[in-house]
């Protein structure tokens, strides 16, 4: 043990051990307060409809990040869970007249159910094969949605009512709907944080860090990946379901492959495997799409340029680079 006392230099961990409240590091706690403040203050300055859409996509990106950032699985078909969640919630609201919280839960349930089946099939393969299988399955969902009558084909489900929250509070006015969307986002966001810092999350980290070693310790790693997949797909469904109620419409756009690409872009741009990256990424992408819209094709071109720049120069994404620069975990 003599050598142990002489070697304090290499005892210093490169990353500070997690501590603080509920597994948030100090920097994450500060970022959380900033985010909460932004959620409260921004609707008084920015168009609430835009913010609601942003929060829905931020939750979608966070759900996607749970899979790629914390398990290392690149799903290229997350539009399927988002889009089907959107359709399910729209149908439940319009045809069954259910209250919004139930519609959102149904959206999440449909996403999770679909994720269970697709995940079970895809998880047997790794890397590019996994991505291709998820993409192929998602495109099957897209063609299913083109064909079946309940999605109303090219028109989509339009004029979706919001009804009253718990049958009591009418969510018709945008500001009321905004608080509902903000609450859904926060619950999803905190749930993801909890998943990462749970006994299950600890195993996920171990699997990502050294899968053969996790196997040799007796972990059936596919089961853990599948549960992560189902959670991610379920939350994507919740995001889609909330979005449908927000914008009163559920269309094929939500379920088609460019949507899968968009969520990859948001997550990469914000920072893979960071807690706040997907939120920031969603904000940047949404802002570009909304405020550059008058310039038409320039949106796509500038998105492409940003994507290339991000991959070439800022591989860690906006939040990832910031965290590196500040030497904290975000």
């Amino acid at each position: 043990m003599a050598s142990a006392t002489t070697a304090p230099l290499d005892v210093l961990p490169p990353t500070a051990p997690r501590s603080g409240l509920f597994g948030f590091t100090r920097a994450q706690g500060i970022a959380l307060v900033v985010m909460l403040a932004a959620i409260v203050v921004l609707p008084f300055f920015v168009y609430p409809q835009f913010l609601m859409k942003l929060l829905c996509f931020a939750l979608f990106a966070c759900a996607f990040n749970l899979l790629i950032g914390y398990v290392g699985l690149l799903s290229f078909g997350h539009a399927a869970y988002f889009g089907m969640g959107s359709y399910a919630s729209a149908y439940a609201s319009q045809t069954w007249g259910l209250s919004p919280e139930l519609c959102v839960l149904i959206g999440g349930g449909v996403g999770a159910g679909l994720g269970l089946v697709f995940g079970w099939i895809a998880i047997r393969r790794a890397g590019i094969y996994f991505a291709m299988i998820t993409l192929a399955l998602a495109q099957m969902v897209y063609f299913f949605c083109v064909q079946v009558p309940f999605t109303r084909g090219e028109d989509g489900i339009q004029g979706i009512p919001r009804h009253a929250l718990l049958g009591m509070v009418d969510l018709g006015p945008d500001m009321r709907m905004y608080w509902f969307v903000a609450a859904v986002f926060l619950v999803g966001f905190l749930l993801i944080h909890r998943v990462i810092h749970s006994p299950f999350g600890q195993v996920l980290t171990a699997i990502r860090e050294n899968e053969p070693r996790a196997v040799s310790l007796g972990y059936r790693v596919d089961d853990y990946k599948l549960l992560a997949f189902v959670l991610s797909a379920g939350l994507a469904g919740v995001a889609g379901g909330t979005k449908a109620l927000t914008v009163h419409i559920a269309t094929l756009i939500d379920v088609n492959w460019p949507m899968s690409g968009e969520v990859v872009l948001m997550t990469l741009l914000g920072g893979l495997g960071t807690l706040f990256g997907p939120v920031v990424g969603a904000g940047v992408v949404m802002a570009m799409e909304t405020y550059l819209a008058p310039f038409g094709a320039w949106v796509t071109i500038s998105q492409g340029i940003i994507f290339v720049a991000c991959v070439l120069a800022f591989r860690a994404g906006i939040v990832g680079e910031l965290a590196k620069w500040l030497r904290v975990k975000l």
Partner: peptide
């Protein structure tokens, strides 16, 4: 080893497998 886990956490991952609760995603670590 699991390089970004602490030394203690490395051993705990093994203990956790044997003693169950590894799918509890809703509980705090």
């Amino acid at each position: 080893v699991f390089p970004h886990l602490t030394v203690l956490e490395n051993v705990r991952v093994a203990l956790q497998r044997q003693r169950g609760g590894s799918f509890d995603f809703w509980r705090s670590d």
